[in-house]
Every structure is written in C-alpha cells, then in structure tokens.
Design a protein around this nucleic acid. Structure first.
Lengths: 143, 143
DNA sequence: ACAAGTTACATTGCGGGCGATGGACCGGCA
DNA sequence: TGCCGGTCCATCGCCCGCAATGTAACTTGT
C-alpha cells in the first residue's frame, strides 16, 4: 500500500507543531520562558490569582501537565503559588514582577514566531489555515 | 496587548498535533505501536536493513530521539538491531515478523486517524490544508 | 455530626521531542 | 604505522504531553 508521509495530516501536524514550537522556543528563551509556559502566562496576564483548576478549565492541558508546568514556572521565578484563602486544597497562582514585566516582549515573541513560519502567506491564506486547524481540532475534541 | 490563543498558529498547531497524535495512538495501540514509531515503521516497510543514520536522513527527527525510539521498538518486539557487516560503529535495523504483519493494518489506522479529524472537509480543503502545512514547515526548515 | 463521595493537587511512570556529551570506530595523512 | 579529525551511536538531563494513583480537604446526605 502506498503511503506518503507528506500527504498525511497526522505526520504533517507533528512536523508543524515542532516547527512552531522551535520558533517560539528560540524567542522565548531569552525572555526566560518555555513554549509550554506561554499559554499559562497568557491567562495570568489577563487575570491573576486564578487557581490551578481555573487554569485547567481555560486551557487544553491535563492536570498532571499543569501541575508540573507550574512547578517549573515557580522554580524559574515566573509564578508564585499561594494558599487559597477559603479552600485549603486549592492554590492561587500569581505572577512575579519578572513575569509581569515580560508581557509585552513575550507576546511580541509569540507573534514573531507565528509570522516567521507564515511568511509568504497572504492574509486570506493565513486565516484559512487557522480556520482549517480549528475545524480539525474541533473534530478531535468532539469524539 | 490583545492576544487570542485561537488566532495563534503556534498554539493551534500544538493542539492540532495533540489531536492527531491521540487519534493515531488510539488506533495504533491495539496494533502495538506508538505514534512516534509509525514514521520509522513506514521507512522500514519500504526498505529494510537501513542503518540508524539512514533513517535519520530520511526522517525529521534528531539522533537522540531516534536512538530512544528504536530502543523502545526493540523492547516491544517490532525491530531488531544487528551489527553492520563492515562498519562496527553502525547497526542495521530489521523488522520482526510481527512488524511486517501489521503493515496493512497500521497504514489503515493512520489513514483513519487522518480521516477522523478531517471529516467534513471537502477534498480541496483537505488538499489546501496539507499544502499550507507543508509551506509553513518549509519556512521553519529554511531558517 | 459523621461517613461517604467528590474535588484539588502532587507524584510517578511512560512516550517522545531536544541539545550536549562521551566512547568506540573509521579514514586519511604524515 | 600511528595519530587525529570526523562519524555512529548511546546516554543524560530537560521540556512537555498523558493516564493512573494517592492524599488532603471540602461537601453532602442522613
């Protein structure tokens, strides 16, 4: 049976993710954050003091991954975990000054990562690609 | 600065890859292979006895990843590593009978994974999406 | 008020990606 | 021949994804 990797969306999507991740990693490294930490930072920039559970509800990440990511971010001085005032099981996540300072640069780095891999795309092509990705993701989430 | 994850190709590509990977994993599990092993199997089905180096040249994977993947595949009885006849540094990789038997089913599983996430796509939309992915990947490789 | 069920989080083990490093080996050149 | 740079591979440490499991704390029903 003929099977060309380059015609497989599964294979291409893994290459694509690696490419984008590398692009973001290069740019995020100087700023002190890793690709997997960026979505967490995004949420906290828009609202601080979220619990781990609230972050989980907002992001497409499993609880175990989140716990480990937060631990790394705390170790790297991006985030502080404080006890929740009324629920002793829970914790609230706060940004450090360092993380707050980097908001603008980090977002620019992410935009630059996007841009670098989509260079040569016309505006409608970029939009179409994003839309196709969202459609496929929705198919996957549905099942 | 406004920044919507769902407008970021970097973020969407990671979600997309996770979705496809999960789809392939579900289907590959019964057949005894993991998603990362599939590209290696593909190469070996088309040509056996390749060295690790040759596999590296054909796939977009780093040497360290390949060594680990092959070790897992050997452990799982998919592959045998034999000493290269003339170069004692090198090894040749051969498929086990088990791995050979699963070629057809595995390829069907991969096609099914593709299909499940692209359901609802018209033919030209699927083709266009693949093309966009290849373009972005090429941009990333170029750098 | 208390047992039982649920929830929040940490931890562990695994797949799989990466860079860096090290050992064994090959090849070419003096 | 003997040395030295390059090559093939293994290994280690790290990031990041997952499922499964454990613990503490909250909630609910009786």
């Amino acid at each position: 049976m003929a099977f060309d990797r380059m015609d497989s969306a599964t294979y291409l999507s893994s290459l694509l993710a690696k490419s984008f991740s590398r692009a973001l990693q290069e740019r995020g490294q100087k700023l002190g954050f890793a690709p997997g930490q960026f979505p967490v930072l995004l949420e906290l920039w828009s609202e601080e003091g979220l619990t781990q559970k609230q972050l989980l509800d907002r992001l497409d990440i499993e609880q175990a991954t989140m716990a480990n990511t937060l631990a790394r971010m705390e170790r790297d001085g991006l985030v502080l975990r404080k006890k929740h005032p009324t629920d002793r099981r829970a914790q609230q996540i706060f940004l450090t000054a360092k993380a707050k300072d980097r908001e603008r640069d980090a977002k620019e780095a992410a935009l630059a990562a996007d841009q670098s891999l989509l260079s040569g795309f016309r505006h409608f092509e970029r939009e179409l690609m994003l839309e196709y990705m969202r459609m496929a993701i929705a198919n996957g989430a549905q099942n």
